[in-house]
Structures are given as C-alpha cells and as structure tokens.
Amino acid sequence: MKYLKTIGFNSNQPIGRGFNYPYDIAFSNDGRIFVLNRMGGLNPSGIRIQICTFDEDWLGEFSTGPGTGDDQFKVPVCMAFDNQDFLYVTDESLNEVKVFDNQGNFVKKWGTAIEGFGCLKGPAGIAHGDDWAVYVVEQYANRIHKLTRDGESVLSWGEEGTGEGQFDMPWGITLDSQGHVYVADWRNDRIQKFTSNGEFIAAFGKSGDGVGQFNRPSSVAVDGKGFIYVADWGNERVQVLTPDGSFHQMLHGEATLSKWAQEWLEVNQDELQARNNSDLLTKDLPAHLRTPFHAASQTEPVFWGPVSVKLDSQDRLYVTEHSRHRIQIYEQSRSLSTQDIL
C-alpha cells in the first residue's frame, strides 16, 4: 500500500465539518463517505454522522446530538451500507441497530427484542452478506449474531474464551468476496475467520508487538484479492496480511495536511508559521515514552487510535484514527495478486 492523502480535521463543535473521535466510516453506492462522529465523555452533543467526499467536499450531517430517539445515538460504534444503500449503525449503549437511507433519513431500528435472545448485548462491528444477512458482533455476549435485515435471528455462534470460535470482547467484522466472515477478536489479539454459518476456518495473529502480532485489533477489512487489513489498535498501526494470514506489510501512518487543515491554517498564520518551524515527526523520545501510545500521541503524522479500516470500491484503504480525528487513505501501490506473495 502507498500513502495517498488525509481527509478531515478536528472540531469539537456539535455541528459542521470536522471530526471529533471519528469511529468508523462507510461508503454509499455513489461513493460518498459517511463518517461516524462518536464524541465522548462530558461532550456528547456532537454525536452525529457526517457526509463528505474523497475530495473533502463537506455535504452535510444527520442524527445530531445524543439521545434515545429513533434517529439518535448514545454510544455509536460501527456502521455499514447494505447492497440496497441502507446504512446500518450499531450503538453499544442502546443495544440497537439503526437503519437510515442514503440521505440520512431514519428508516427503522431493531435489536432490543430479538426472539430467543432479548436484546443485543453491546453491538459493535456490523457487516452485510450477499445472502441478505446482517452480521452483528455482540461484544458483551462474545458472539457473532447473523440476522435478517429486519433483525430476526438466523443463527449465532461464539462464547467467552480463547479457543477456536471463542471470543474476548470482539469488535470489528467484515466479509470477503466469498462470504467468509472475519472477526477482530479484540482481547484475544487475533483475527478469526469463519464460514458464513459460523464454522471456524482459521485464526491469525497472537499477542505482541512484532510482525504478525496484535495488540487489541479493532477492525478488519479484506480486499478483492483476499488481502487482510487489520487495525492493530493497541500497537497504533495497521498490518496487511496475505490471504493465508501471513504478514505482508506494516503501515504506521504518514499523514499530511488535509484540505480542511490547510484552510484552517491559512487563516491562523501564527500557528502555521510556528508549525512550519517545528518537527512533528519525533524519533527521539525519552526512554520512558517509547511505547506505541506515547510515540503516537507525541508524533503527529503517525496513526493514533487507528480504530477502523475500510476499503472503497477501488480497494483504497481508509484508516480512521479516533484520536487524531482524521482519515488516512492508502492506495494499492501496484496490482497485487496472491501470486506475488506465494
């Protein structure tokens, strides 16, 4: 992968362009980028979904402000469009999945009255299958729930544990072109791969900060050729794996100024000047600060809180960083095939 550009910048305002703890993104059929603005703590007023383009045109927002109303969120986590261009968004506090059309109009919600299950237990990652199924990660139940688009249970699998098909607070989920399901098994520091019916296929990674090792992976994406992209959240990096799960490439982030950032600095010349006289790519941290978290927090271009990885229709990789309030985009450096690797 090759770094392409950065979009977004920080804004702690409750409306308008700019992100505050962006947590996930999704692409509508026409290529617009929907950004989930999570906010946090004592300032939840800006919880909302913003819409922008690859060229950073800001198009608007919806579901503004926290609450329990039909189109509101309390602690939103992940989202994904289905093939009919409806956006499904999870909320781990309300235990609901809310569905919107591609204009941001509320359509329906479900999750609190699933026959045989009651409510979803901390819905996190969400993904759609070609078989009209919706796959929802229930982080507190340590299971994957396959449902219809109306929220009726089809099947579920998983329980707490470290064995095959067991989970410890799973988070992100995705499907590949063959319908296999990949789950970011967060506290087990691995990615698990299943059939669409929940049969275990493989597990990739183990705890650590070496290549092929993970520290709390939060999100996973698979491109058209089967390469696996993992948001290695606790290690503040993204790892690319080959289709068989072998290590392929490490991404640490190399953000440049986005269009919005440039526009802001142009009208704040004092900060721009001081910034231009600074070196924000720190490589000489004191010993006690040489951890991924400290390095990321003190070094602006690298990933800090890479919480979500998503691929667009051109297999460009979008890395959403909640603590740098931006999205770094990578493109395929060349046309990769499995033959290149094997």
Binding site: F9, L280, S297, R326
Partner: peptide, 9 residues
C-alpha cells in the same frame, strides 16, 4: 487544530 493535542516531551 488541525489534528488534536500533541503531547509534549
């Protein structure tokens, strides 16, 4: 701005 706080060392 533009990308949140930068911690110091």
């Amino acid at each position: 701005w533009p990308y949140g706080r930068i911690f110091w060392h």
